[in-house]
Computed example of a mutant assay.
Amino acid sequence: MIDLDGAMIGMITLDRRDAERPGHVRPDAGEAGPGYLFLPEAWGFGYAAEACAAALDWSPAHFPASRWCSAPRPLNDRAMRLAAKVGFTEVERFEEYGAEEWFGLWFSVTPSG
């Protein structure tokens, strides 16, 4: 839960991506990604980026074998900016629910080479 001055303004989750959904880099579909939901009046202030970055920075110590992914729709400008801002790198694009999806991975340490 994310609070601002004692009021709940949103939440961040770290959710496993279902194996039957498209967009995976491992056969066992072990990826998970941040989910977020914020009140509209909290949009545009960077709270989601700050909370997602904190959750992702916290995650390697608690879930060391996890790969963190993000799959926003490219038409969702805010979600795409958030994915880039917290460090997701594009791996592929695919179609789901009749629309193009962007699939990116986050690395706790910048990959070499």
Rank of each mutant, 00 (worst) to 15 (best):
P27V: 02
R81A: 15
S59Q: 14
D18M: 08
R17E: 10
T89G: 08
C69V: 05
A42K: 00
E41V: 02
R78N: 11
E41Q: 10
F88D: 07
A48T: 08
S108Q: 14
G87R: 10
P64V: 00
L75N: 09
G35N: 05
D57Q: 12
H24M: 09
S66V: 13
P60D: 10
A61V: 01
C69A: 14
A19T: 04
P27C: 06
S66Q: 14
G23M: 00
A29Y: 12
S66R: 15
A55Y: 05
A51T: 03
E100R: 09
F88R: 09
A42Q: 01
E31V: 03
A65F: 07
E90W: 03
P72H: 05
V109K: 14
F63G: 04
A99W: 06
P60V: 03
E100S: 07
P22T: 01
P74R: 00
E20A: 11
D28I: 08
T89S: 12
R17L: 11
G104R: 04
A51Q: 06
Y47D: 01
R73P: 03
F103M: 06
K85A: 14
P40L: 00
V91H: 12
E41G: 04
A29M: 08
W102Y: 15
F94E: 04
P111I: 01
W68A: 14
S59Y: 11
S70H: 09
R21P: 00
Y36E: 05
G104K: 02
K85Q: 12
W58L: 07
F38R: 06
G10M: 01
D18K: 10
D3W: 11
D18F: 09
P40K: 01
A71N: 13
Y97G: 09
I12P: 08
A54S: 06
Y97W: 13
D28C: 14
A29F: 10
G104L: 01
A53C: 02
W68E: 11
A84G: 15
E50V: 03
E20Y: 05
G6F: 07
A65M: 08
I12W: 07
A54N: 02
P64A: 01
E41R: 10
L105E: 13
R81T: 06
M1R: 07
D15P: 04
A42H: 01
V91I: 11
V109M: 10
W106P: 14
H62G: 03
